[in-house]
Each structure stands twice: as C-alpha cells, then as structure tokens.
Design a protein around this nucleic acid. Structure first.
Lengths: 351, 351
DNA sequence: CTGTTAGCGCATTCAG
DNA sequence: CTGAATGCGCTAACAG
C-alpha cells in the first residue's frame, strides 16, 4: 500500500535542502556538511520517513531479495534439515541487507515459479536445494547466467557454485562402525533417488559392502522418499526378509524415526534385535528412545557458506564458481549394538 | 540484476505498436483487437519478455509480498506446527499472486525487522504468529493501520483480524478424557507463557481441576518453552515430586516427545507408569512409541483462513476485522492409560 | 481500439 | 559541498 508516506521530497522541503541531499544522507555519502546532515536526519525522523524499496529496486535493478527452491513442494515438511538451513541462511543474508523468500513451493511452470521471480526482478539470486542430477531448472539458470548456489548437489563441469556435505564419506563412517560392531548383513533404506545426495549414499553403501567382501543383496535395499512413513514401511519390508539384516542404515533421521516406530509395532527391540542408523543429526535424533546413532552435517556451517557464495556471485558477477565440501562427523549414540565381541584380527583382515 | 532484459518498449517496437498496447495486453485489458494482441504476444515470447516487478510495485504501490513474524527467532525450529502452517499459507497466497517472505527472524529494532519492511513497501501485509499479550509490535501495526492478521492470538477490542484455535476447549477435552480414565493427579508443563495460547491452556487446566474438586498444586505445574529440552526437564521435575502425578499434559507435542525420552531414561513406562498428552498433532506425534494422544489443530484450515483474512484486509481496507476460532479435536492414541476401571457414578458425581 | 502525457520515488550524472 | 536534469519500467488518465 504505502500511501500517504513521506518521500524524499517531503524530507527535503522540511530540511530546506534539495531532495538530492536527502538521498546522499541516506546513502551515507561523505560529502554532506555535518550540520546539513543533522537537519536532514531530524526531518527524516520527524516525518517518519522510510526509503521506498520499489523505487530503489527500479533504478538500481537489484531487489535485495533472494529465493530458495526445493525439489518437492512438501520438502520443508519432509526435511527438518532444510528448515534449520533456511533459518541459518536467512539470518546471514539479513545481516547483509537481503531478504529471503520462503522457498516457493512452486514447481517449474506453475504460476510464480522461481525462474519467473528471477526474470521479474523479484529476486537477485537464489539457492537451489538438492536438485536432481539433470534438473532442467539448473540448466536454465546457468544458461541465463543468473546468480545461484546449489546446496546438496554438485556441478559436473564447474558451471556453478555449490556447497555439499561429503555424503560418501558419511556413509563410509557409518558402515565402518557397523562392521566393527560385527554386522555383516546390513540393510539400507534410501532417500528419494532423484537427488544426487541420496544416490551418493547408496553408492557408497554398495561400495563398502563390496570392499568388505560382502554380497550385495537387492532384498536388503529399499527405496524410500525421506518421510517418516517410508522409513516405517522400509523397516517392515526389510525385516520381513527370511534372513533379515542385523542392522539397517536409513538415509536420513526422519526415516530412522519411522523405523523405530515400526520396530515398536513389530515388537522388535532396537538395538537389541536390530541396529539402526540415521543421517543428518536433526534435533529429534537425540530425543528418540534409543537415541539415534547418525552422521552430523554441520548445518550452521553449511548455511554460512551458502550465504557467502551466493553473495559473492550476486555482487561480483565475474568470480569463478566455487565448490565447498564439508566433512561430516559420526555421532554414536544408542541405536546400534555389537552383535558379538569385537575381534581385532578380523577387523584388520576385513579392512 | 535484471540487466539486458527486454522492456515493454522493446516489445512494442517489435510488435509495431505503442508500449501502452503492450501494457494492456499484459494486464488482459479487453479493448485490444485480437490480431494486435496476437502480434504482441508473439513479440513477448520472441523476446523472452517478463514484466518488471519493481516498476509495477512503484506505481501501484503494492509489492505483492507478504511477511510473517514469529515470537522468537528460533520459532521455526521450535514449533513444527509453524512450518506446516507456513507451507500452507504460502501455497494459498501464491495462488493469488503473492509471495511470502521467510518469517524474518529479526526482532524489533534489528536491521530488517518487519515493521521496516512494511514502511519500505517491501510487503503489503503480514502475518503475526503467536504474539505476546501486549506485544508492542501489534500496537504499532494497528496504530499505522497496516494490514495484518494474527494467528494464535486474539484482539481484545477487535482492532484486528485473527485466527485462533479454541485452546481452552482443547485442554478441556484432554482433561475430561484423563479424568474419565481415572486420573486425579494431573501435571501440566506449559509452553512459553509470553504467548496467549499458552496462557489459555494453563488457565483451562486450572479451571478444569477446580471444577472437578481437585486441589491445584504448584508442584504439579512446570514452566516450559515449547522445546524438546524443556519437555524433558519438565517431566523429570514433576516425576521427582514425592507424590508424582499419574498423568502429565504437555502444552505441545514437541515437549511431550521430550518427555517420552525422559521417561525412557528414567526407566519409566508410558503409559504404564505415567500417562502423557501432547498438543497440536504434528507429524511426529503418531510416530512416537507409544503414539501420542493429543489435540489436533487443523493446520490446513488455519492456513486457508489466515490467507483469506489477510487478502481481505490487504485488498479492501474498509472491511471490519474478523475473528475466526477453530474447533480442536481430541486424538486418542496410545500414550494414556486407565489407572483403574471406569465408574460411571463417580464420573457423574465429579462432573 | 490505440497512442500520448505524466508521474510513481530514487540515484546517477553533470553543473554550479 | 549542493542542486537540477534525466531515466529506471510501468500504468492511470486522457486524447484521438
């Protein structure tokens, strides 16, 4: 609305200067005599003047807004990790004078999708969360040389900046740990395989098993989609196997929580009867019973980096894309159990 | 940035019309000859033209953005309910051509607080979530006649529109149920008492106990702040009481989940040793073991109403503020236990 | 049906 | 150090 608001002209009149001087004061231009500045500031205060963002945006062609885009419309609900990240990024950006649009849940081609927001100049840059391997939206953004940063994704040919966690390493940590506890039949419930992240974790799971001379059984892998429900279903499915696994890795904490519930319903004890691991270390992970053994991604750090890279590519168009890969960390809690005493020789042999 | 973008002028030149005609086509003005319209649409497509949001905002003085504000900066993390609501509202608003800023986590007086956003014309309206009873921000907004809607809060003198759930009734439902199960010592862990919601629930808890002739014991009430941690601590504190309660109501699901964890750590069974209830019915509530008995707030409905009221007060300044109070619903799951057989006479007597 | 004029509020450029 | 002119892209109000 913003009707009846004082403009620079009004301030100028009241301070008995031209509105150009007002503009200078606002933008902290050095060349204004202190007493003039004072007069102007007084007038601004008296009138309750605020600069008009639209006008500013119009002639600087920068909105000082940023958007964020998710792989699916329910992502915020599905991935608590994402919420924590958003909060982090928002705080960082605001410090630098930018505002963050709530990740439009709009899919491409819908009204108000983020590509349109870009073109309309409503955002200066955006954050793309966990895009699919060949997400067409990415190609479009890169093709138009629009400033954006990918989180939880990678660029093959260095077309854009991204921040990712070393998912492969995270999985390796988990499997090494389970192996050490004596587990040899280890199941895996994946996240949505459209996402690179999810693929990486699965791939490393397979590789680790192979490396350790274990046979890969399709029956030990189950397709999930990050939700509580799919964790629940995945657990049941794997445990119905005639030779069920002794441990199951879930590709995020949320699914592991679903699994805990399934175990309870099935009358199975965790970790007594099956060991379980999550991924992400969201808040809830330490509040389940048993508390989840999981892999921590340092969300604060991810958020900082994302904001940093985005600001870089919004403010200096020329800069080269940068890649940042954060090290994950194994968090051992209570959801895994040694199925037999640890034998050093065996451990070494299998390593 | 939006540099090198085609403008209406470019489109006009290409379509060999004046740019006014282009504007009309874009705004679906009826008075344009079909063939002219076609030519213009072609040109728009060829040039990849998108209207400039800033310019539009400037001369219509409407940004078509909406903001949302929370009581605390960590609110999104603390209240999953809030995330679900945001997603809902965003979807509704987008359908009407508005975009939602991620609830600025900024407190008042910080750079980029939402009052400033308003004054700068970055938002046309806003949603205020769970404000304190005399939140100065509310007074400010109301004083300036800015369009806003409160969720989980009320206006005493009808100064503004709001959507709320009938918290008092929700608590009554819960207590009636517990009473029926035979509980007579019932504890309560509050949310942050700065919020009206939280106060209402506590008040009704007290009233119900009094009504049923039970003595209120301060030792059975514990101050929480909505977080998992405070639920955990609250549970421990109440159970350390020499005469612990047989049931505890938590003012949200999150705290109840914290309590479940505490029970587990203390070696207490739920509901065998203590009954527990939550509030909100978030996703996780049905995935705990035992599943939480709680009160459902229909988040979808809340979101719809919020969006509706906000649009109303943004588009028709004159309309009277409206109040909407939604009926909550008891969701019985597994976290409560009858402590003795139900006796009809006693139930009637105590009613 | 279509074009012209003017102005939204601000900042860049160039003169004083 | 300060002021005047000009244009950012668009639309409302008038003309033709």
């Amino acid at each position: 609305m913003r009707t009846g608001m004082a403009s620079q002209r009004d301030v100028a009149r009241r301070a008995r200067v031209s509105f150009m001087t007002v503009s200078r004061v606002i933008n902290k231009h050095p060349s204004v005599r202190p007493e003039t500045r004072e007069r102007v500031l007084r007038a601004i205060k008296d009138l309750g003047y605020y600069p008009n963002a639209a006008a500013r945006a119009l002639n600087s062609s920068r909105s000082h807004n940023v958007g964020i885009i998710f792989p699916r419309r329910d992502y915020l609900l599905v991935a608590p990790f994402c919420v924590e990240l958003c909060a982090e990024v928002e705080a960082q950006l605001r410090r630098r004078g930018y505002h963050l649009f709530l990740g439009s849940t709009a899919e491409e081609r819908e009204s108000g999708d983020l590509y349109t927001l870009f073109k309309e100049g409503k955002v200066d840059g955006m954050i793309v969360f966990a895009p699919a391997r060949d997400d067409p939206r990415i190609a479009r953004l890169a093709g138009d040389h629009l400033p954006f940063v990918v989180v939880h994704g990678r660029s093959r040919r260095g077309e854009f900046s991204y921040v990712d966690s070393d998912n492969s390493r995270g999985m390796a940590l988990l499997l090494e740990y389970l192996f050490e506890l004596g587990h040899r039949r280890i199941g895996f419930v994946t996240g949505s395989l459209a996402e690179v992240n999810s693929q990486d974790r699965l791939r490393r799971y397979r590789r680790e098993l192979r490396l350790r001379g274990l046979i890969l059984e399709d029956a030990l892998v189950c397709l999930g989609d990050w939700t509580l429900e799919s964790g629940y279903a995945g657990f049941r499915k794997l445990m119905e196997n005639p030779r069920p696994p002794t441990a199951i890795c879930f590709s995020n904490d949320q699914m592991a929580i679903g699994a805990l519930k399934a175990a309870h319903d099935l009358g199975l004890g965790v970790p007594r009867d099956v060991s379980i691991t999550g991924y992400d270390d969201i808040k809830y992970a330490s509040f389940t019973a048993p508390a989840l053994t999981t892999v921590r991604q340092h969300i604060g750090e991810v958020g900082d980096k994302v904001a940093e890279l985005l600001l870089e590519c919004m403010e200096a168009r020329s800069r080269e894309p940068r890649r940042i890969i954060l090290k994950p960390e194994l968090v051992v809690r209570e959801s895994c159990h040694a199925i037999r005493p640890f034998r050093k020789e065996e451990w070494n042999r299998n390593r």
